[in-house]
Design a protein around this nucleic acid. Structure first.
Lengths: 229, 229
DNA sequence: GCATATTTGTCCGTATGTATA
DNA sequence: CTATACATACGGACAAATATG
């Protein structure tokens, strides 16, 4: 994969979605989609010249997009060598889940003093995941599951905590690419998420936090097992 | 302040320090120093043209430095208007301290399973702050105090938690600029930091965490008081 | 409200240095 | 070691948005 034409095919997109903010952000949006969909697998080197031609933007604009995605942890920038789709290790998985326990745990324990409507977004995420499951759209289930955990983070009512969780979940999408069977991975959590919401709705914060902890332990173990192979 | 000459005077620096990494990072280092020293106070607009000439770099390189500092939260980028030194509000102070309680609290409670040498770095930060105080260098005391809290974060042995605290403390430096008297602000914490280290060294993790919490409450209140005026 | 000047956003050509086959 | 490919950085250009009178 080296010519601009070959890259073009992978980047075909509706230009309609490219109409807000600076060019850099729009280009980053396109690349982010391709990366989280696995079109550019971890380790892939993103050639400036080929992508520039394929996307029809200048190097400056493309480099801005690279910088945005590098900041999100999706790309790794190696000086004088180029930009690569980030490859996460088993240690990264352990670190991500240790951090998730801290952040999501703190957020859910603050549920009693959550801002109005924050719990509604948790419920909406649960319902949207269940709806996607009924339609057999398991990638969409995964996306809704991310929304669920983002909503949990929102209970803390802290802009910086919410943003940290957002970045954390973005990195996790790189890890999920190793899971070959999205249905088997995501399906069991539909019920767990519903249970956590139910406990929160009745004010059983401590029990909800305990269920969340068990969920994180289990997901981490599953991912580490997948990394073994 | 509009001509390049006027900016040049504020940017005078030893070029010797400008010899690692990409140009963008070196330019960012210079600007970061000036911002945290208060040379460019919050709200200042950083003109591309003036800075480009003063620093002797191209616009592309300067814009790269802007992006790096915007990621760190030190600059705010307003589309088609330019970049400004970030102005933090009282709400930001509350959010920063709420987040500090979560992150530093989680880190200090993990002190029992901290990696080898992590506690030594806490002690080193305490001692370096005390040494700076004996020399009456109160800005340096503030820097060492940051090192102390960074070392506390290191007890958690999580790359991502450490990085989050690093960014959090960088933003806090913008807030500290409102404190007119650095000595009165930093001096009381010398003893508190020594006390926290002592408790950690004897394994009294819970008590150390409690002292840290009281420290954070007090610092937050002081800063919010300063914001009132 | 309008016209002008300034500044940013974007693109391009080119020179230089660095990594790799 | 040489050659090639590529990233870094510069400077100029023009369009678009903003600020200024």
């Amino acid at each position: 994969m080296s010519t601009a034409d070959e890259w073009s095919a992978l980047l075909a997109t509706d230009r309609a979605s490219l109409d807000r903010g600076g060019y850099g952000e729009r280009v980053a949006d396109v690349l982010r989609d391709r990366i989280t969909q696995g079109v550019f697998p971890p380790g892939t080197r993103l050639s400036e010249e080929a992508l520039r031609e394929a996307l029809g933007v200048s190097r400056n604009t493309l480099r801005e997009a690279f910088r945005l995605l590098a900041h999100e942890g999706l790309l790794a920038h190696e000086f004088n060598r180029g930009v690569f789709v980030r490859e996460l290790t088993a240690d990264d998985v352990r670190d991500l889940y240790a951090f998730r326990r801290i952040l999501e745990g703190a957020a859910i324990r603050a549920a009693a003093s959550a801002p109005a409507g924050a719990l509604d977004r948790v419920r909406e995420a649960v319902e949207s995941a269940e709806a996607a499951a009924r339609r057999d759209e398991w990638v969409e289930v995964g996306t809704s599951n991310m929304r669920f955990h983002q909503a949990i983070a929102g209970l803390a009512n802290s802009r910086r905590l919410t943003e940290s969780v957002r970045r954390l979940l973005a990195e996790l999408r790189l890890v999920f690419l190793v899971m070959a069977a999205p249905r088997e991975f995501h399906e069991p959590y539909l019920h767990v998420n519903r249970e956590i919401y139910g406990l929160l709705a009745m004010g059983a914060v401590a029990r909800a936090a305990a269920v969340l902890d068990r969920y994180l332990d289990r997901a981490e173990r599953q991912l580490l097992d997948a990394f073994e192979r």
